[in-house]
Design a protein around this nucleic acid. Sequence first.
DNA 1: CCATTTGTTATACAATTGAATAATTTTACG
DNA 2: CGTAAAATTATTCAATTGTATAACAAATGG
Lengths: 218, 218
Amino acid sequence: MSRKAFQRLSLDDRRRSLMEATLVCVAQHGLHGATVRRIAEEADVTAGLVRHYFGSKDEMIRTAYAYLVGQLTARASDSAKQTEGDADLQLRQFLRANVTMPNLSEQKVSLWATFIGRVRYDPQFAEIHREGYREFLNLLEALVEPVLVAHKRPHSAAICKRHAIALNGLIDGLWMEGSLNSGLYSQALLPDILVEASERLLGLPPGSLSIPQATQEH
Amino acid sequence: MSRKAFQRLSLDDRRRSLMEATLVCVAQHGLHGATVRRIAEEADVTAGLVRHYFGSKDEMIRTAYAYLVGQLTARASDSAKQTEGDADLQLRQFLRANVTMPNLSEQKVSLWATFIGRVRYDPQFAEIHREGYREFLNLLEALVEPVLVAHKRPHSAAICKRHAIALNGLIDGLWMEGSLNSGLYSQALLPDILVEASERLLGLPPGSLSIPQATQEH
DNA sequence: CCATTTGTTATACAATTGAATAATTTTACG
DNA sequence: CGTAAAATTATTCAATTGTATAACAAATGG
């Protein structure tokens, strides 16, 4: 009887591979069903490696959570940065990125919710959540301010923050319910609903955050 | 060595007692840590009763989830119904009830998130979620329509639904992030943020959903 | 080509889990 | 007051869990 053949991976590759396997298992079976053995099997290794790379299952799950949060924010942020110059367009892209693929994903919402449920009784999860939320709020605030300025709307720090909080709530809620897709409406509506609602929240003229017709090619 | 003394409860009382113990344990330790033994201890009974009343742990947890969702919606709905007559005031009360105690609660959000995480891989949880979401959306739609009518805003069925979807997203997001209270802002701001944002979303004049000064007694 | 390091597998183990069954106590009723 | 039915406790059991340890194999550098 021969042992399983295997190849060594770099530290980063192996860790990422294990984190992604963790996310897959948590999404598929919940924290409860995401056992070390199942995760190891998903990553095509044996269970002992978890200890080797993360010390414990809990530590691996924490790391995977932070990995997920970072990914979500980065996707939206990158989408905004891709379009340079126009403040309206940047905000628009940021908003839309949150309610379209790949961020609009039942699996990601499912994961996110599962982890959020742990924030309350696990201080280390609370810390990861707080950091992620803060970063997202700051990003949003930084995107909102120039838009308000451009449209000559009130834009004190307090007002910007208030708008960012409300917008963030709107984004989170639509992202979540939209991803879970209860079948009560089409997911394709979400970007427009979000953009239009954001215009209203910020007190912008209707259509401000729509694509300028001139630069629209397709 | 004598057995533990006990008293018989009515079927409904015992079931509710077990469901509430389930919620306490899930909030405190997650689905993972909410073992039958711990839940039984919390309800001050022995583990066997779970089987007797629910058949299985999973069935008990499902029932507790439906119980929680019903409670959340009922609280908001009751709050709206308490104020009769004025459509604006009813919507206002409904909104505020979602971001004030007892619905604004880290424990409730924590529970809700934990269960949402299960919607994806457990069809019975998905059914409970869908039903709860539909009911909430309908309630919201029914509250929004007369407000739009009163303010002579567009109020076709499609528009009402669209508003309900956006409003629901806003409520969910603010309720969640506000309850988790990352410490980035005061929870006391939430009702005003939500009400003001809702006015904007619906295109109402500022202050429409504030308490009418004339009828304000305290 | 050999030796050493360490990434990886394989096995073992104590603890805990959900559920099943048996024993006992409470309640209701005649 | 006694007796049957039902609720509750106590105990047992097989399965699964996370982790620890030992055996092995792959890459690395001389």
